[in-house]
Design a protein around this nucleic acid. Sequence first.
DNA 1: TCCTGCATAAATGTATACATTCGGCGAGGC
DNA 2: GCCTCGCCGAATGTATACATTTATGCAGGA
Lengths: 231, 231
Amino acid sequence: MSPAVPGRPAPDRLRHKTVSAAVADSLRQQILNGDLPPGVQLRQDALAEEFGISRIPIREALLQLEASNLVKIMPHRGAVVTGLSLQEVEDIFQLRVQLEPQLLLLSAPHLSHDEIRDLDALAQEYGAALETGEVLRWGDLNSRFHLDLLRHANRPRSLTIVSGLLQDCERPTRLQISTSNDATRALSEHAQILDLCEARRFEEAAACLRGHIEHVGTSLIALYRRALARA
Amino acid sequence: MSPAVPGRPAPDRLRHKTVSAAVADSLRQQILNGDLPPGVQLRQDALAEEFGISRIPIREALLQLEASNLVKIMPHRGAVVTGLSLQEVEDIFQLRVQLEPQLLLLSAPHLSHDEIRDLDALAQEYGAALETGEVLRWGDLNSRFHLDLLRHANRPRSLTIVSGLLQDCERPTRLQISTSNDATRALSEHAQILDLCEARRFEEAAACLRGHIEHVGTSLIALYRRALARA
DNA sequence: TCCTGCATAAATGTATACATTCGGCGAGGC
DNA sequence: GCCTCGCCGAATGTATACATTTATGCAGGA
């Protein structure tokens, strides 16, 4: 029953084991939430004092964040929160369109009824968070849904890549809160994908997933373009 | 440290600026060369003494290597050199087959004659290294050739991903040295791709690239399967 | 006025020293 | 005889202190 398939970088569900990991998670959340917008300089001394710890764990946390493309470290010049260019966002969605449906075709046949039920629970939790305005959990739930859907594709590297793409989608997704009718549509599309999977109509499920990503992508890119134009 | 977009992990425009980066590069080379085979434990104290430095830069170097999937760090349990499962290698080549030809279609029309000449120089250098047995430069030259070929696709995230895939190919590629007739075939295929690009027959170039990756992939996977069976 | 050059300050990078955690070994009990 | 509990050693994780690099500001001169 143990999911040997890598769900996430680290099983963060248990308590943090090291300070640097805790700091990394905290900063990651702040960046994904937009609390730390792109371009902000992260000074080690300030962060160390703020967290009440030494600079060493801060440095290691920043290195972990750089691995996720959340910050850019320049030697002797500190770390800066990175931003995604419009081109990058477009690229990310094109990659998702190209990769995810194909992986779904491989993974869906191996989804058990229990797993589909769990996915449905995730989707409903996502809907609940949508209504209560819990924006923080929004992107995370969406990412987990998409990843769990593809878990059984037996393509470990592809899943790692998709995981990275999904995480990068979380930041611009925050913009979409205002136009949350897109989000409700996403909700129904998630349900539809699950229904098609349970009915073992995998080709249609993949097509639906493709349409879902395309729709979210075009909507988000339009929004992102305007947001960038403002700044 | 994630590769900027073109070039390599670190554009060595200048000599190493920090010790941790130098250590990371050294360890990276040793791992890619097979000097540090998968499963080896990297103890910080031993490395620190070996390099004649403190443990702090060692730790940061290990974190950078973890970002490249070259080592796996477990909290309080040290770092271990990672290996690629057969499944991962297969996945990597399927991804390359899926991504690279498409990117070539986007990039090739923007390749100038000078750039094609540079690429040809790279290919010839690769051939020279093949004959003189300079195995160390082999994987690096191959990666640079493929990356430079796709440089103008205007798909930054895709290029980063392909860059990672290529680096991961470097390790199992070392196995291929013995059966270097595959490598000579790769050499001619590289030249053929360039010729088709210069003739502006982009579709054929992409098809050729696809066949090239597929051929190298199947050959390498067969070899890798036997190597894993031994160990 | 503008440019050059150095001195100063602030931030990062590294070394040393201390604290914490994990794994193994052996004594003790069931 | 086997299992459990607890101590001990080794390695990692973190704090403190020092060194190095980069950027800034001011003085001096053309």
